[in-house]
Computed example of a mutant assay.
Amino acid sequence: MFAGPGVAGAIRNQFNLVGNTVNSGISGGTEGGGASGGDTGAVSEAVHAAVAKDARDWTLDEQKAVAEDIAKKGEASPAYAKAKAAMDAGTEWSITLTDGNTLTYRIIGINHDDMVDGSGKAGLTFHTTSSGISSRMNATDTNAGGWETSELRAKMNSGEIWNLMPSDFQSKVKSVRKLTNNVGGMDENAAVTATSDKLFLLSYSEIVPTSYWADSDPWTSSEGTQYEAFKGKVTENFSADASLANDIEWWQRSVAPNVSEGFLEVYLDGDMSLAEAATSCCCVCPAWCF
């Protein structure tokens, strides 16, 4: 782990996190806020059922139906208020992975991510809150090629981590466009590019309100906007943020600025500006959209 932003220091290769360590895989998306407009027509039975119950009891089918209704109608959806309240409260759901472990998750965004097919926004973005999956980012200590060419992205979109997800879950996930510096950490003026992703890691700019490196590395401000669940809660852009502290270290998809060996992580105490060597084993907290 490097000592702080932009400082190349000792690299820590640590493999002591509890979880399922996955170390090989096969290679497997622009975003913004605001509610989408469009059809305000009929409400499906699944949406009616979701509105009639506590959000914590929503099934996968109801989560998907709510997401699609919100994508069509924005705040006019009868499920919008319940989904937003669930996001604000940090309501969690769970699924059983194919290896028998449990993955827990919550809503972090509403009409935030752009669909790959150009049809508009994905209604809901979810993020993992459990620590049962862990992996290295790359087989060697390099961030060349960024998230796009990383070993971990491959595992999450068509390899071992994707295959941990049950088929009923897989069938509901939408492919979205994610913006990332896919060049490497040594290029201060790197242009961000888009990838198509089913499961993805959060970027630094999707977590923090503003970039610590905005002046020296402008790309760090351009890898997406802060998710709604973090607004007003995650207020730091460097050093520990209590709202992110979770006693685990989890990967971001952003390369570490000014170094060539690693990617950013969220540290145990909620510091989101630390770099970890690409061969280190950290928790993987997938995000996805319905």
Rank of each mutant, 00 (worst) to 15 (best):
A49K: 10
G33P: 00
A49C: 01
G32R: 08
V22L: 15
N20Y: 07
D39Y: 14
V18K: 07
A35D: 15
S27D: 04
A35M: 09
N23L: 11
L17V: 15
D39M: 05
H48K: 15
T21W: 06
I26D: 01
I26Q: 05
V51Y: 01
N16K: 07
T21E: 12
F15T: 15
G37K: 09
N20L: 14
T21P: 04
S27N: 09
G38E: 03
A50S: 00
E45Y: 04
V18N: 09
V18Y: 06
N20Q: 14
T21Q: 11
G38F: 09
I26N: 02
V43D: 04
S44L: 10
V18E: 11
G33E: 04
E31W: 03
A49E: 10
F15M: 10
G28V: 05
V47R: 01
V43Q: 03
V22G: 00
G29S: 14
A42E: 05
K53M: 09
S24W: 10
G19A: 08
A49V: 00
E31R: 08
G38P: 02
K53D: 08
S27H: 06
V18H: 03
A49R: 06
S44K: 06
T40L: 14
E31G: 10
G28K: 06
T30S: 12
F15Y: 09
G32A: 14
G38K: 12
G29W: 06
G29R: 12
N16A: 11
N23W: 03
G33L: 02
A52S: 09
E45V: 14
D39F: 14
G37N: 12
V47F: 05
V51L: 01
G32I: 06
A35I: 04
S36W: 02
G38N: 13
V47Y: 02
V18P: 07
A42T: 10
T21R: 12
E45H: 01
A50F: 03
N20W: 10
N20D: 15
G38W: 08
G28E: 06
T40S: 12
V22P: 00
H48I: 13
V43N: 04
E45R: 06
I26W: 01
A35Y: 03
G19F: 10
S27V: 09
S24A: 12
S44G: 13
N16P: 00
V43H: 01
G37C: 05
V47W: 02
D39L: 13
A50Y: 02
T40N: 13
A52G: 02
G33A: 04
V47G: 06
G34V: 03
V51D: 02
T30E: 09
G25T: 09
G28Y: 05
N16Q: 08
G37T: 15
T21A: 13
A35F: 03
E45L: 13
T30P: 02
T30R: 00
G32Y: 07
L17M: 08
S27T: 07
I26L: 07
G32H: 05
G32T: 12
D39C: 10
A49M: 03
G19M: 08
G28F: 08
